[in-house]
Design a protein around this nucleic acid. Structure first.
Lengths: 251, 251
DNA sequence: CACTAGAGGATCGTTGAACAATCCCACAAG
DNA sequence: CTTGTGGGATTGTTCAACGATCCTCTAGTG
């Protein structure tokens, strides 16, 4: 990574200054892009994990990953620490770091969070919300993906929809919570085959929820969403329990 | 920390086996206590930060902290990485790590999260909840602290109350979110003088909320809580903006 | 055959040294 | 007062080393 980092930084610094104004803004942009190697490694690994390149259960060996990315073990360990808190990795003392394999109880908890947060985020809507365009865009992306039979992309668009729903709460911390929840959910879907089954049936429901929100009917939208999440949870928990051959929790 | 770690581990391993049964459980207990040095350092620092030993804005120099704790810089950096995600520390590239100094906007966001999550957690209560004892215990601790004029302890008890409220949602992830929120709030209170002012007035409201919950009146409890949080927010945001001499956000 | 114990190798956790890069502070000059 | 420069302190990263732990394989025993 020494060469990559140098190249990365060098290309950032070597950008010629704009001949006319805006030079201060370019300097700011360069500052924005300055991250440590450990953080960039974490970014790379995060992407690889959430897109399924490292499936759940995969062990990330320091030597192999460090050699692959060209960074030292210490830097890699820092990156691992960054990712364990996001629940994408599990750190096991003296055994290494693994991509998290969620339990059925984890899935149940994810839906509990979603019901609590997403429903609370839209309950109070009493006029057409500002974030409706973003919701509509996510649904449009979903329809596009569906039209070309790209079920992974449909799943992604559906998650953007839910992230946008949560964003109606207007809280950075809640947004980040939901981003983490949806990332974990991605790990769950990586274990499952047949993404079509878990994403396609819900697109129409997104339309219905949007219509309620557009009318300023928060409670109506909430009811639809709660039913939707109940249905989605039951389907996924059932299938996941079967797939991972673990007993479905009684709670 | 090499000696500390060895001592720590040695004392764990040197425990004589129980002469009669239970040996397997003792072995399990020893496993539970096995954590890495980096994690233990993070625990120590977390405690020091939340109790105010390192006030917000304090820079944690690697050399000084590492020498004080007897760990190497690499181990310390791993611990720092663990804490930055908890928002207790801010990592600034090439400048070091600082105890987070929250902005007024942060405070506002913390209360937004609290209103969303705490209210949602109790809204659906329709019978005396299982967690009522824990709530009552927190309030009893608060009354005790108040009786001996220990306003810091009262603040702690109040936070236990809110953590217990959130726990009524029955979600591990939501519990952890709230633990983080309350830890951040502690940082806010460390900036303020006169803890009495921010904790004492709310003890009576805890009693009232508990009474509603004991009657299975979730919506009633929610209304009381929402008003309480609005009042607490307004008081704290006003004082914090004044203390930090930053403009109060319009949002 | 099944189970247990021990040895060896791989890997992790930690330490410490080294070096380059960056930042900050103090001082000098205009 | 402002700006520029130099020097020192510190951070970010790499590397090597070593001890501790875990896992796998082999041999021995019942």
């Amino acid at each position: 990574m020494t060469e990559t980092a140098s190249g990365y930084l060098a290309s950032g610094r070597a950008a010629p200054p704009s001949p006319e104004g805006g030079r201060a803004l370019e300097a700011d942009r360069a500052l924005l892009g300055r991250t440590s190697t450990a953080e960039r490694v974490a970014d790379i690994l995060r992407t690889r994990i959430t897109e399924g390149f490292f499936p759940p259960g995969t062990r990330l060996a320091e030597d192999a990953i460090g050699a692959g990315l060209g960074v030292s073990r210490n830097t890699l360990r820092e990156a691992f620490r960054l990712l364990t808190h996001e629940r994408l990795l599990v750190h096991e003392l003296n055994r290494g770091v693994f991509v998290r394999l969620l339990t059925v109880a984890d899935v149940v908890d994810l839906y509990r969070v979603r019901k609590l947060v997403e429903c609370a985020a839209i309950r109070g809507v009493d006029r057409r919300p500002d974030g409706l365009d973003r919701l509509a865009a996510a649904v449009a992306d979903g329809e596009e993906a569906k039209a070309r039979d790209d079920w992974r992309a449909l799943g992604t668009a559906n998650m953007h929809f839910h992230q946008a729903l949560t964003a109606l709460a207007g809280s950075r911390r809640v947004d980040e919570l939901m981003a983490g929840v949806l990332a974990e959910l991605r790990l769950v879907f990586h274990v499952m085959a047949d993404p079509r089954r878990f994403h396609e049936p819900y697109l129409a429901r997104h339309h219905a929820i949007i219509a309620r929100l557009a009318d300023g009917d928060g409670p109506g939208a909430e009811r639809l969403l709660a039913e939707y999440l109940d249905t989605a949870e039951a389907q996924l928990v059932d299938a996941y329990a079967r797939k991972t051959a673990t007993p479905r929790p009684t709670g």
